[in-house]
């Protein structure tokens, strides 16, 4: 280890890792380049596009969704990160949100998709029946260049509908 490196533990999608990284490296760089976790994507690396969104428990309150590119990785020491790989079932089973993104055509090039699915999943956890305005308010940290967003809104609405129907007695 060189003097400008930091060593720490990090749990990613349930797997514990020992990480050695430069002190200034972002959580996104550590995930992608050090640990080979490629679900979070690099779109802008300055917190604008949301392609790197992950759900993280960083020992600073409740777990929440954030841009991995903005988090100094070592501040996540001892914490845990759930990427897109933690959404959906163990055998490649799709979550209701993932299923809806596919069915409604919310995926084109797909580079934004993991981030959108992550943010939309979080939204539906806290608000199972969001209005269109609430969907937009929750997702404007995620940029999409292909779809024009119409199918993404449709997918979130469809997932919410499915979830409500399944939960109905």
């Amino acid at each position: 280890m060189t003097p400008d490196e930091v060593a720490f533990e990090l749990t990613v999608d349930g797997v514990r890792h020992e990480v050695t990284a430069r002190w200034s490296e972002s959580l996104l760089t550590v995930l992608r380049d050090r640990l080979g976790v490629r679900g979070p994507k690099t779109g802008c690396a300055h917190g604008r596009c949301g392609a790197c969104a992950v759900r993280a428990d960083l020992g600073d309150g409740a777990p929440h969704v954030l841009c991995a590119c903005l988090v100094p990785a070592a501040t996540a020491a001892g914490g845990s990160v759930a990427t897109i790989a933690s959404i959906g079932g163990p055998d490649g089973e799709l979550s209701d949100v993932q299923e809806a993104f596919l069915a409604e055509g919310a995926v084109q090039c797909g580079i934004c998709t993991a981030g959108f699915v992550t943010a939309a999943t979080e939204l539906l956890e806290t608000n199972p029946d969001p209005t269109r305005t609430e969907i937009e308010a929750a997702l404007y940290g995620n940029l999409c260049r292909c779809t024009g967003y119409g199918r993404i809104v449709a997918a979130v609405e469809a997932a919410a509908r499915t979830r409500r129907q399944q939960e109905a007695p």
């Binding site: 994507k41 897109i84 790989a85 490649g92 299923e99 993104f101 596919l102 797909g110 580079i111 699915v117």
Partner: peptide, 15 residues
């Protein structure tokens, strides 16, 4: 549906 869609929604599609 897109044949590459499942991999994309799982974050497994390789870019």
């Amino acid at each position: 549906r897109r044949p590459d869609g499942p991999a994309k929604v799982r974050g497994e599609f390789s870019y």
